[in-house]
Amino acid sequence: MNAFSQLQFAKAAEFLIPSLIQGFSVVIQATIFGFLLATILGMVIAIGRLSNIKIIRGFLYVFLELIRGTPLLVQLVYIYYVVPLLFNLIASLFGVKTDVQIASLTAGIFGLGINYGCYMSEVIRASILSVDKGQTEAALVLGFGKYQALFRIVIPQALRSIVPSLGNYLVMMVKDTSLLAYVAVSELLLRTQNFASQTFLTIESYTYLAIAYLVISIPLSHLIKYVEYKLNNK
């Protein structure tokens, strides 16, 4: 008798797949809000680092170094466990007793958003710098102000070149939501871990988990290629 015939894929599917489908909605929420936050933050940091004001540039540089020098997993744990404690500690210095906690999904979204925002800011900044200086000057000599030129003329051109790389970050973020398992977000990995440890269907469970990620990421990356193709052939 074949050893593989002992595997109980059907049984695992019956209980795990409905749970994974629920987990999908958590993954999608975390990705949408995380990516939104990352895009806004990335844009703000990119523009801030192009500003003339030295303090802003310096502050953002240090912030970027801190975020890029530490792993995402550590940042998630830090936001989830340490930040509320620090807040309570500081509040107690002022004689206020607080018991702030942060919901695990919220912590996850902030962690993803801040981490990805920092990496994406570099891509956005490079794309803004890659727009010909003549474009800014053309806007200026027509009577537009510096920021009007940036927002109306330069950034729209920069964003067009940026879509493919931001798309890659989006696919990466979907996969990185698995790290949220460590801050108790019941996404796909945590659900699978729980199921596997209860049923000992280890091979089956994690195989389904891997397939679940593929089901999201492969169509998503094709969608991004399609958008890129459409943009290039416009």
């Binding site: 053309a138 000599v141 537009f144 067009r160």
Partner: peptide
């Protein structure tokens, strides 16, 4: 206010610098 001045004194560049979009 250089914006005011530039509305009255236009400029044409060597590299045209039309807005491609």
């Amino acid at each position: 206010d250089s914006k005011k001045l530039r509305q009255e004194v236009g400029m044409v560049f060597q590299k045209f610098n039309l807005f491609p979009m």
